[in-house]
Amino acid sequence: MQAKATNLRGRRGDSVVFSAVGFTLQSGRALVVTGPNGAGKSTLLRVLAGLLGADEGSFRLTDAAGIDLPVAREAHYLGHANAMKRELTVTENLSFWRNFLAADQPSGLSVDAAIDAVGLSGVGHLPFGYLSAGQKRRIALARLLVARRPLWLLDEPTAALDAKADSMFAGLVTAHLERGGMAIAATHQPLGLESVETLRLDGVHHAVDSEHGTWDDRSEVRA
């Protein structure tokens, strides 16, 4: 399996936050996207997940035979928010996503096993809202385990995690890579991963040169 981005350009509003981004990622490899705040790390991940349209370029996921796979169905996306309901218990939250994300056939770990894997055994019966910020993030990581998807798109995965949980997370990702998975993580913390490639976004914003013109007066001057 291979993930390949070619000449991606993404923008937020009227300004281009990155352009000409390309990379190729093979099974078992991870890509860490770094860069200063506002460099477009989150935007890039949302573009990869298909949540935002790319301005230009393409991102394709292909299997060993070179056939295109739907990214939305093959990828886990972990954004800034944890995608959990505070009213429901941890188990209810995770079993919902387990059912929802693997509609056709349940794959991945059982809910209890996933909770164990993030080191929070016994937390299942508690409402999600009772947990601390770090515990919530760890349960959000457990979501990646209850449905098996080869590509993990992680936006600041270790936010709110302490050092111990950091290494737990590194272990989870390493295990995922060893099973032939891929991971793309946006972060400015070292993840403690081996076998990673790094993509650095410089954070220089450009005005959009659109054929319809823009509202950005700098481009008007240049034109």
Binding site: G119, L120, S121, G122, L126, P127, L131, S132, Q135
Partner: peptide
């Protein structure tokens, strides 16, 4: 007690 349990699980690791 549930709140306390949630805290205990986190710190006990």
């Amino acid at each position: 007690m549930r709140h306390r349990a949630a805290r205990a699980i986190g710190s006990g690791q």
